[in-house]
Amino acid sequence: MSSIFTEQPWIPDTGPVGPALSGTEIGLNARRSALKVLLSVVSIFFLLMIVAYGGRMLYQDWQPTPQINLLWANTGLLLLSSLCLQWALMCSREGKMDWVKRALVGAAVLTVLFLAGQLAAWQQLISMVLGDFSNPSVGFFFMITGIHGLHMAGGMVALSRAIKRAFDGGDAAGIEHSVSNCALYWHYLLGVWLVVFGLLFSGNNFEVLLRICGFI
């Protein structure tokens, strides 16, 4: 890539042309880059919601969402499932397929539990606000957690395909690829959740937010 700045494209090749990538290699590379591009799109998506939330907080009539302690437990579940996937990735690199299967299933179960926990948290909040969503912070809570949950649910599709692959006993490189893609996605969504939860839903962190944004 460094040559992109210095290359003088009108000079034709004087040198040789190297060997081409095979179709399979292109396919695997493509998946990885597609995931990276997708994650940057998702980053913008969450960033916009967080900025909107932060911007709204600055108004004087801001009332934070009531605290839901269940979210701490859910955070733990998500953290564990992310760890499970990391473990699966390490095992698949060492070729321990039995452990890969166990770790993948573990990650899936933990993720389902996380999603169930989020639903329970929703129910708690609905009963706390008596079905009145007119407070903006409550609206933001449902939207951001909902969209995060949808992303986790979408990830479950990829994860279940990876599990199927592992149990069908496909080629090791292919399995490693899908496990590593799943792991990247899970770590990423864990990171998103930690930012969202840490800044917005774990208490009134208004001052922290201001400090991060450089207002204080």
Binding site: P16, G18, A20, E25
Partner: peptide
């Protein structure tokens, strides 16, 4: 991919890219 264009080894005839799954 970036190593492909200006390699310093000898010039080779284009070899076919492995068939992508079409």
């Amino acid at each position: 991919m970036e190593h492909i264009a200006h390699d310093e080894t000898s010039f080779v005839r284009p070899a076919e890219v492995g068939e992508m799954e079409l």
